[in-house]
Computed example of a mutant assay.
Amino acid sequence: MRNQPKYNFFKNTSYAIAGLKDIITTETSFKIELILMIILLPVIYLVDISLVEKSLLFISLMGMLIAESINSAIERVVDLVTLEYHEMAKKAKDVGSAIVFLSIIVFIVIWVTILWNI
């Protein structure tokens, strides 16, 4: 049997909001990326580019937050299993960091490419 309650839209939404509250209060990297998003959202709105380009800017910005969330989830699960050093735990955490790193590269490439041509 799965360790999962029956699907309920409102209950699942409350779980998602609880997760967001937790990551905002406990993860410094997420806070920095959230501040970056708050600063750059008006830029997306104000810059004179196509809707597709604006969408790409937004998606790449959200991608960083999504990647940071995935990384935090990986780190928490690893820490739940063991707080002692283990090579596999290190590798799992390194992969989580790589996800964030790659999302930042995608973000930079998209933003530079689109804004360079204005």
Rank of each mutant, 00 (worst) to 15 (best):
R2L: 07
R2D: 11
N3L: 12
N3I: 05
Q4S: 10
Q4T: 11
P5T: 09
Y7K: 10
N8W: 00
F10E: 12
T13N: 12
S14P: 03
Y15V: 04
I17A: 03
I17C: 01
A18V: 03
G19V: 01
I24Y: 12
I24D: 05
E27L: 14
E27Q: 15
T28M: 11
S29A: 13
F30K: 01
I32T: 06
E33K: 12
E33L: 14
L34M: 12
I35N: 15
I35D: 10
L36W: 07
M37T: 15
M37Q: 10
I38C: 13
V43G: 08
Y45K: 15
L46Q: 14
V47M: 12
V47K: 11
D48N: 15
I49D: 01
S50L: 15
E53M: 06
S55K: 15
L56A: 15
L57Q: 01
F58S: 12
S60N: 06
G63I: 04
G63E: 06
M64N: 14
M64D: 03
A67P: 01
S69D: 01
S69T: 07
S69P: 03
N71A: 07
S72Y: 08
S72C: 10
I74A: 04
I74F: 00
E75V: 09
R76L: 04
R76A: 02
V77S: 04
V77A: 07
V78M: 02
V78Y: 00
D79P: 02
D79K: 11
L80Y: 08
L80V: 03
T82H: 00
L83F: 06
L83R: 11
L83M: 07
Y85G: 03
H86Q: 05
H86F: 07
M88D: 12
M88K: 04
K90P: 04
K91M: 14
K91Q: 09
K91S: 13
A92C: 13
D94N: 09
V95N: 08
V95P: 05
A98H: 05
A98F: 13
A98K: 13
I99Y: 01
I99S: 00
I99L: 05
V100F: 03
V100T: 14
V100W: 01
S103C: 09
S103T: 05
I104N: 05
I105V: 06
I105R: 07
I105Q: 05
V106R: 08
F107D: 01
I108E: 08
W111H: 10
T113F: 07
L115V: 02
L115Y: 02
L115Q: 05
I118M: 10
